[in-house]
């Protein structure tokens, strides 16, 4: 690209620089949107500040940005509901990460098997198709009845919620493999296991990573539900107990922390994708 540009500069006629053109575009055409997004955030933040400064909305409904900031420091240092922010956060992260690991460890092999074997698909399909459209809150009572109110029921709820997207995407990854690549591997003398390791698994990896990304999102949105079950720690628990005392500023702190960590996880997944499947989407 840079070569083309410098060549153009060398061959440019004397006088004013030529008008640069590009093909007419449809949609975004790959152009960056972040300056616009930045503007959007600034405008929204300013509106929030103005609304609370001039008392247009009572602080009970909408605390000022300053109050939320002060409360953030207070919750971080002194804590809220018998635990500091870091402790709440550690409890929530522990649940999400362990549920993610358990779900991935089970759903990836099962999804791959379902993509490869008629039997695996036949056996597992009705179960997954039955439970995965259910909202986690609907089977939450069952978790409590079966597993009690400890950590197990919370992690199980999260695991179940995360399981389906990972499993279904691993399956889609296998189904999307090109028959030609597999045939090519077979004519090179690959055994079933070798073909699985060198062609099937790497080929399904982009879809598996997409599934993990979706699962993490589902995990965060299920977290508050999971921490409704007699938790004593957790960001979701913190939000729920703050809400009971109408401490809106603490609710805002909790929401902000969840948003920030959800964003960090998503960023991490994107980096993981760039590292594991740099070839994805090319040629």
């Amino acid at each position: 690209m840079s070569v083309t540009v410098s060549d153009a500069r060398v061959s440019a006629p004397p006088g004013p620089p030529p008008r640069l053109v590009r093909p007419r575009h449809h949609g975004l055409a790959g152009r960056s949107t972040w300056p616009i997004s930045l503007l959007s955030i600034v405008v929204l933040g300013a509106a929030w500040e103005l609304v609370s400064r001039y008392g247009l909305v009572t602080p009970l409904f909408l605390p000022s940005p300053g109050d939320v900031g002060t409360q953030l420091i207070a919750v971080a240092t002194e804590g809220y509901a018998n635990a500091t922010l870091a402790e709440h956060l550690a409890a929530s992260l522990g649940r999400i990460v362990s549920a993610l690991l358990i779900a991935a460890a089970m759903a990836i092999p099962l999804g791959l098997a379902m993509g490869l074997s008629r039997w695996a698909k036949g056996v597992a399909d009705p179960i997954i198709e039955f439970y995965w459209p259910l909202p986690p809150l609907a089977y939450l009572p069952l978790m409590i009845i079966w597993l009690g109110i400890g950590e197990t029921s919370k992690v199980t709820l999260l695991t179940l919620a995360m399981f389906a997207p990972i499993c279904l995407s691993a399956q889609a990854g296998v189904r999307g493999l090109s028959a030609e690549r597999i045939n090519a591997a077979l004519t090179l003398g690959g055994t079933r296991l070798q073909v699985f390791r060198t062609v099937v698994l790497p080929g399904a990896l982009p879809d598996i990573l997409t599934g993990l990304r979706i699962a993490i999102g589902v995990g965060w949105s299920t977290l508050v539900a999971a921490e409704l079950i007699a938790a004593t720690r957790g960001i979701g628990f913190m939000i729920m107990s703050a809400a009971q005392f109408l401490a809106t500023d603490v609710v805002f702190v909790g929401i902000g922390v969840i948003a920030a960590f959800a964003f960090l996880f998503s960023l991490g997944m994107r980096l993981l994708e760039r590292w594991l499947v740099p070839w994805h989407g090319r040629g």
Binding site: E180, N183, L186, T187, L188, V199, P202, W279, H280
Partner: peptide, 19 residues
């Protein structure tokens, strides 16, 4: 009876592994 390394195939589309 089945594919094997004694018969090499060059495909219409190259079927290379992008990874």
């Amino acid at each position: 009876t089945r594919p094997g390394a004694d018969r090499g195939v060059v495909f219409q589309k190259d079927a290379l592994l992008p990874w």
